[in-house]
Every structure is written in structure tokens, then in C-alpha cells.
Design a protein around this nucleic acid. Structure first.
Lengths: 193, 193
DNA sequence: CCTCCTTCTTGACGGTGTAAAGATTGGGGT
DNA sequence: ACCCCAATCTTTACACCGTCAAGAAGGAGG
């Protein structure tokens, strides 16, 4: 079954393709990844992917889902390891930025509006998005309570923090900003109101 | 000279191609814009662009330069129209975000690390980058003085503000955040330290 | 054992980026 | 005035790509 080295019936081609795509993504931006190259890397014909993913976008989206999972895992692990709510918020942001720094193409794919649309209702993506939103909301809510403030503008504050961290991450991922500049930048932002 | 409708010697093909590319960019993301389609739109053979721009990337970069100019003009106009340094900083950010909202593909192109590398030393791009950095630095410096604070961490604060605004702009441009959420988000960020 | 259904291959089509070679034209030197 | 040249654009060609249609291979259930 899984030990068939003869052409047809690969065993678990879907996973193999996603892994091949993920491997290529470490060295190439999403736009440069071709379906045929992924198929070649997985040792199958160029049309094989079409049965598992409808088209090129489908494959890239599956790879993006994998990246999103990694991205989320990292945020959750960082949040879990923090002591108090303030540290937790910082750890969350640090995980966000360092992911973009270490895997810029994966980060770009996750936020590519063509390949990974933001309002994707698919059963693979939707729970990930929900979990990420919830994680952020929880951390911000805990921090607000920790500081003894009202939860009134929880949503707005969450959006603002998301924007700040996302912007720094994007700039780092695109090479516009060095990772070392992020820490000082955030410290300066806290210092001035 | 410029009125030659017969095939060869277009007159000002370079500009025509950039304009055709810019027009396509209003409806398509950079990745979907093909050299041949741009050439077609300009009424010229598919290999014509190669004499003016080395390759596809060259054309897209030229289009990106044009977008960057628009982007900068908008920021400068917004900054010039503001009364005091505080308003000026807000206006700068608002211009940044609204550009990403109105022309998401242009925004994406300007910050595409493949097509428009961040450390591009080319004579078209370098002055634009410098001008933008200077504009931000000036606005932040003026604001610091306006508030009677030290200019010590000017650079770090500029990076932080850039990150914040860029993040919100990117999220809006990618459809992850609605434009209406940006104002409340920033207000919440100011409210809490 | 035979059949069916899933999975994968082969082959083909149009589109793309790019390079090489050929056509056209405007302008400078005589 | 002419000729030649260099710049500009076209034509042709090639490899690669995404996608679709048809066919082969093999496992699962009768």
C-alpha cells in the first residue's frame, strides 16, 4: 500500500506534495513556485496534483494552511511560556515577528490575499483564523484586566496591536527593517504615549 | 515624429508601457501582470518592452517607481496640509493607509521585495526612498520637539510608527482589516500606553 | 476472478518570459 | 542630397508553465 514504488498509487501523495511545496517555499517566494516543480520534487507526473488540489492555487493554499498552523503553534507556545499577561503580549508579538524573519516566504503566503483569502470559510482555514483571533483577544483581554482597565475597546486595541506587530513583521520579512531594530522600536513606542 | 502610426518607432514607448502597466495594476495584482498583456495594451509586439526594460522585472520595477512617486506625493501633500506637528503625523499615517486601501496592488508592488528590493540603489528608486525616510524623520523630529521630548530615540520611534502604520495599511490592503477599523484602533492605541 | 473506482500518466493546447535574428526608420556625417 | 548607422520595433523560436482530456495501473468489493 504505502510501499509501492511503481508509478501509480503513491500512498500518500497529498501530504508528499504539500511537503515538497513547503520545502520549496523555504527558498522561493510563493509566486515562483510552480506546480510542475512541486510534482517533480515529489517524484510524480506534472498532472498528478490535479486530483488532490483543484489547481495551483489549491496546492499553494494547502501549503499556506500548513504554514498557518506552524505560525499559530509558535504564537501559542510563546504565549503559554509567559509568566504574566504583559510578558505574554510581548511574547506573542515576538513570535509573530520572528516567524516572519525566519520564514519570510511562508509569512507572505499566509497573508497573500490571492492564495489565502482573508475571509476563507474553508474547513481547513476557518478554525485557524478563529483560533488566532481568539488567542489575540484573550491575551489583550487578560492584559487589560491585569492593568485594571476597561474592556470597552478590546476589539480596537487588539486591531491596533495586531497592526503594529504585523507591520514590523512584514517590514522585517520584506527586508525593509532589520530584526534588531524591532525591539528598540517597540520600546520607544511604549516610552512615548 | 510622435505622429507615426506605422509600426516601428512609436515615439515614447517607454512611457506608454509604464502607463499600460499602471492601468493593469489597478485591476490586477503584480503577479498576474504579464509582459505580453502590457505590450498588447500599448499596441506593440510582445518583445518590444525588452529594449526599454531588460525583462519583466524591469517593467514592473518601473511601474513600481511610478507608484512610489504617487505614494510619496500623497504623503507629502498630506503632511504639508497639516497645521501642527501632531496633526501632521496623523495626516501622514492616514495618507499611508488610504493609499493602501485605494490602490492595494500598487501598494503591494511598492513593497514587493522581488520586484522592488528595499535596498535598491538605482537612480530612480534611491532618491524616493531617501525622501520618504527623510519625510518621516522630519515629522517625528518635529513632533518630539513639539512635545518637548528628547530626540534620543528618534530612529527607533520612527521605525515603530512606520511599522504600526505599515501594518494597518498592509492589513487593509490585503482585506484583513476594514478601513473603518483603523481610526478606532489608533485611538485605542493612544489611549492605552 | 472479474469489475469498478480511485489514482496516476501521457499527450496536447494556449499562454508566458526570453533570446536571436531580421525589418524599419530617423538622424548625422560627408 | 545621399548614405550609412544605430536605435527601435517585429518576427520567429524555444522552454516552461497551468490546465484539460484520455488512457493505463492497481486496489477493493462482488
Amino acid at each position: 500500500m504505502s510501499r509501492s514504488s511503481s508509478g501509480y498509487h503513491h500512498g500518500d501523495l497529498r501530504r508528499a506534495l504539500v511537503e515538497a511545496g513547503s520545502a520549496l517555499l523555504e527558498e522561493q517566494p510563493p509566486a515562483r513556485i510552480s506546480l510542475r516543480e512541486v510534482a517533480r520534487k515529489a517524484g510524480v507526473s506534472h498532472a498528478a496534483p490535479y486530483h488532490h488540489f483543484g489547481d495551483r492555487g489549491g496546492l499553494l493554499k494547502a501549503v499556506g494552511d500548513e504554514c498557518m498552523r506552524d505560525f499559530l503553534d509558535r504564537q501559542e507556545a510563546a504565549a503559554a511560556a509567559a509568566a504574566d499577561p504583559a510578558e505574554r503580549l510581548v511574547a506573542l508579538g515576538a513570535a509573530y515577528v520572528s516567524f516572519a524573519d525566519e520564514r519570510p516566504h511562508a509569512f507572505a503566503l499566509v497573508f497573500d490575499p490571492e492564495l489565502c483569502p482573508p475571509d476563507d470559510p474553508s474547513p481547513e482555514r476557518a478554525p485557524l483564523i478563529a483560533r488566532n483571533e481568539q488567542l489575540l483577544a484573550e491575551c489583550v483581554a487578560a492584559w487589560l484586566e491585569y492593568r485594571g482597565r476597561s474592556q470597552e475597546d478590546l476589539e480596537a486595541l487588539a486591531a491596533a496591536l495586531w497592526g503594529t506587530v504585523h507591520g514590523l513583521a512584514a517590514l522585517v520579512g520584506e527586508g525593509q527593517l532589520a530584526l534588531e531594530q524591532v525591539g528598540p522600536a517597540l520600546r520607544a513606542l511604549v516610552r512615548h504615549g
